[in-house]
Amino acid sequence: MTNDRKLLLLCLGVLAILFALQFVLSSYLVLALTRILILSVFAMGYNILMGYTGLLSLGHAMFFAAGLYASGLASYYWGVPLGWAFLIGIAGSAVVSVIIGLLALRTEAVAFMIVTLMFSQAAFLATLHFSKITGGDQGLTLPTEARSFDLFGLVLDMTHDGTRFNIAFTVFAVVLLLTYVATRGPFGRQLVAVRGNPGRTEMLGFNIYIVKLMAFTLSGTIAGTAGALYGLMFGYIGSSFADFQNSIQPLLFTLVGGPGTLLGPLLGTALMTMLIDRLSGLTTAYLIVVGVLLIVMTLWAPKGILGTIRDKWARWLN
């Protein structure tokens, strides 16, 4: 069995288990898992840039928020049906990613991190400044009529836990398989080449700026997809989704799970989300754990859980 086939089987197995979990878990955990799946999509988007291309962004909240606001505002102000609003969210974040990518990719390393951070900060402040439209800090709550939609005669109700879970699951599965395909084919090899040895890649005739831009756009658009999904499913959009902490989230999730591994973002998101959720009942200062983990991972396990397992035991776990 080839390595890629093994990995694909593992992914399918994980998907099957995830799907089955909704029949086993308590209703709160199903809800939590719904959230984890959406945030994993966010982290998977981030992973394409950080893990596979080696570009560390500190501003992915901007893309998440682009999807969130594009879809949410379309639904809130124009009453666009949810399915279309979702697509508008994806399109909106794609546009933002291309524009920011064109600018930010002129820089490298630390400068790239700061540029993405600053653009994202400006976007966050803009959501506050234009509070007449965005609702600012307070945010907007989607009206009841925007909480369900018609898909080929089937009414999907976003206030229903099961419906929400299965939509999140479907999007997660699609993005996971998309990432699988994207990171395996010729495009995936170009990404790895850019990460490993940009100079040689260029000499081989590849335009690394274009390769990076494609990765950046794909990454931002997937992050935006997660944002659109989050806003529409939970019916609330607000500026705290655009803040710095939300940029750190996918970084942390990816770092814990394993940058450059297909399933790392899911693992990292699940562990961290549940950890933070438990801690917030116990201590008000749960962010301290986030801080400690960031340092511990950087010091001792920069490749994350799956990355370390891959290097030690299972080379195929890419």
Binding site: S26, Q138, Y236, S240, D277
Partner: peptide, 14 residues
């Protein structure tokens, strides 16, 4: 606001 919505869900479901 974002965390508060999550906390409301936690109160309800958990």
């Amino acid at each position: 606001p974002k965390r508060s919505v999550e906390v409301m869900e936690k109160f309800s479901a958990e």
